[in-house]
Amino acid sequence: MADEPASQGDAPTDTDIADPPTEPTPETVHGHPVTRSRGQKVVHVPREELRTVVAALRDEGWLMCLDVTAVDYLLSDDDARGLPDGFEPERFEVVVVLMSHTERARLRLRVQVPDDAPVVPSLFEVHPGTEAMEREVYDMFGISFDGHPDLTRILMPEDWDGHPLRKDYGVGRIPVQFKEAPGPR
């Protein structure tokens, strides 16, 4: 099932004052829209505001940043992404997973990153543990993090060319007997 975007509330009609409102009010976190993906809460944040939102969330108790990763949506249909209104689907998406120990919950943030200027503010000042994770995203996708202290390749050799997890980078299979190399996915 695709994500259900948060819908806007409908104004109640005059004659049905006693009826409860049929549409839920849109859910937001710090003013940014929330969608649900298989029941998991996902917040969509514009690129420039990522650091402020994560810092504000940290002050509220979302103390741990579990994961920073990215997805390259080059070969996928745009409308399958379940983005709320006001969010243009871009080629890359940076995904941040936060954890609150007091609420025993996780929160996912999705940030759209365009292909022509793949730069995102770094979360290093807010969560130092994102240092290695952002380096991995840079290495694998080519997305730079503004404010990161040491943005160099971490998994591939330092002089490697290209960003392997991008969809236009081949798997690099060598032909093996009885099995042709698959096409790009």
Binding site: M1, S37, R38, Q40, V71, D77, A80, V95
Partner: peptide, 25 residues
């Protein structure tokens, strides 16, 4: 597998082992 994205985690002997899976159908 139907489209969607999900993050699931378990407690491995080393800590939180998570899987972020995105499916396009």
């Amino acid at each position: 597998v139907p489209e969607g994205e999900v993050y699931v985690a378990v407690e491995s002997p080393r800590g939180e082992l998570g899987c972020y899976l995105v499916s396009d159908g």
